[in-house]
Design a protein around this nucleic acid. Structure first.
Lengths: 320, 320
DNA sequence: CCTCCCTGTGAACAATTTTTCTTTAATGTA
DNA sequence: TACATTAAAGAAAAATTGTTCACAGGGAGG
């Protein structure tokens, strides 16, 4: 039941082997045993290398044809929410795999749509993590990645800071991070943090981004924001009682997309929600049944240009 | 031992199912049994659909990291043969899979390097067939594909005409074909064919292409040119005796890349070899041990700008 | 109305892949 | 040196995938 796994203990650092094995297995169609002979290593090691290659996004799967129904949903979404583009992928059969599927599509989208010189303001979430993971490692000139969120003190693997860094590394971008925790202990501290010159500088850079990539979080209990302990369960209940349906950039919002009046929202160290409108292109990457409410809220009060989601969410959003 | 297979008998026309199944299997990582439950079809059918999806290039595998040694070979090739670009992939473990591997790389290259407005002059070969098969089906505006070779009367699956058509369809290009057999029965007939207005028109279009994509053939007996019967075994022997090391655009050439003086070369209905220099970018897609000699010959006497090959061939070409 | 193919399907079996658990080796620590 | 602790490799079992074969409709032609 561990929803958020730590980084796999065993990593194979040898990119050479991973690439070679992947070629033989996926492209040539050899059996793992055969590959073990060729590479002169144990059969099981081949298997482990291939697993690592998949997990790390060294091999990527691209599905050429899209599903008819998804294309129809894309059109409807564009029309309904005034999007410039929409991407809808089939829903994951296992609920918990939604981030995987949507992340995959997001990676493909970003690979095609990030251009030299772009400045990307980055949010946070499991879906985004998957997307970044699958992003091809190809440098794009003069790009910049700016994190819109502070970092977590614990919880390495799923961390705004970590994600931004990984993204930047993949595309050879400069990387700017908010050197503060995502939630300060108390509102006054937040204000102190945010007024720091270095923080203001990063926020300023984010404001000048031309692409914002973000996700929304729900209250389902496998949501990372709930799963990690940095928001107390009691606070989560209070937020829900106050009408919150989820969070965007770690700000909790109600069904109309407005920031809920609660102390937690005064402790968050992040790019200000209302300033998202300063960024020309906003890409919202989220999906799955349980995100429908938040997504609707986010779409209501945030100018989203591109929506990357799955069938379930698309249908949910369209069924008023 | 059937080297050149006919098109698989069983095709699944339902692109919807293929795409859905592929998503669940490759992206979400479900088991085939699970997918069968979801889609409400038998497990075995899922398996067959997935096979079809792979064969038809509906799912594609992309390997992100390249192999260090291959990168080094690419550099050496560029320098040695004055190429503007080189792509080297790991060699297939099973000799006969070389076209698969190289074709895969060629597809990736073409997908990234064909731009709107391009006119592509196309050669022929098993490797090219695989490349075309894996090409993503994405329209590229105002493109044109021109076949540089006549067609075969039999042998549907591996046919210059067929290949050109498939290529054109994939990228939404206009398609021009040479409406003559690749080898006329007698030289005078060839001249008659080639002087036809319609033929001249296509050749003219090819001459104005900006990209030529071609392959070379060797005398190994699984080579399509030998395998199909349109060159008699006795003629093949004569050609070899006359110093031919293989063919390029169905012209047989000697080790220096010059057209061998033999009747067969006077019967070929194809774009003239020496006119390749009129096309700014020439991409040579070939590899495998047995192609080294022809490739060297082709490189010696044809201005090749991009070479897509495998480790074996790369090493062979560099080891003088 | 009855064959004869032809196609699609599933069952049974074989091969491969994946997981789990054990063993081995390696490294650091008292 | 002995003792942990951890990482890597392997063997065996379990699960999944791939192949083969036989059978059930369902037209087309007799």
């Amino acid at each position: 039941m561990a929803v958020i796994e730590n980084e796999k203990a065993s990593r194979f650092p040898d990119a050479e082997l991973k690439a070679r094995a992947a070629w033989h297995y996926y492209v040539e169609g050899l059996t793992q045993e055969r590959i073990s002979e060729i590479l002169g290593i144990g059969r099981i090691k081949v298997h482990r290398i291939l697993s690592a290659a998949r997990e790390e996004g060294v091999v990527q799967f691209r599905i050429r044809d899209s599903v008819v129904e998804c294309v129809q949903l894309e059109e409807s979404l564009k029309q309904r929410f005034g999007l410039s583009q929409a991407v809808v992928v089939p829903s994951a059969a296992d609920r918990s795999n939604a981030p995987l599927m949507i992340g995959h599509a997001a990676a493909a989208y970003l690979a095609d749509n990030v251009n030299p010189g772009d400045v990307i303001a980055l949010g946070w979430g499991r879906t985004l993590k998957f997307a970044i993971n699958e992003l091809p490692r190809r440098p794009i000139a003069r790009t910049t990645v700016v994190s819109m969120l502070g970092g977590l003190t614990h919880a390495q693997p799923l961390n705004p800071t970590e994600s931004a860094w990984e993204f930047a590394e993949k595309i050879g971008a400069e990387c700017y991070l908010l050197p503060v925790p995502v939630y300060a202990d108390r509102p006054e501290q937040r204000d102190a943090f945010m007024s720091q010159r270095s923080v203001q500088d990063v926020v300023f850079r984010a404001r000048r981004a031309n692409i914002a990539v973000l996700s929304v979080g729900s209250f389902s209990n496998d949501s990372p924001i709930a799963h990690y302990g940095f928001i107390k369960p009691s606070e989560l209940e209070e937020l829900q009682a106050a009408g919150a349906v989820g969070d965007i950039l770690c700000h909790f919002i109600d069904a109309e997309g407005r920031t809920v009046d609660h102390e937690v929202n005064r402790r968050v160290c992040a790019y200000p929600l209302q300033d998202l409108s300063d960024i020309p292109t906003t890409i919202l990457v989220s999906g799955g049944q349980e995100k429908i409410a938040v997504m609707r809220a986010a779409l209501a009060n945030t100018k989203v240009s591109v929506l990357i989601t799955d069938e379930d969410a698309a249908k949910g959003l369209l069924n008023r």
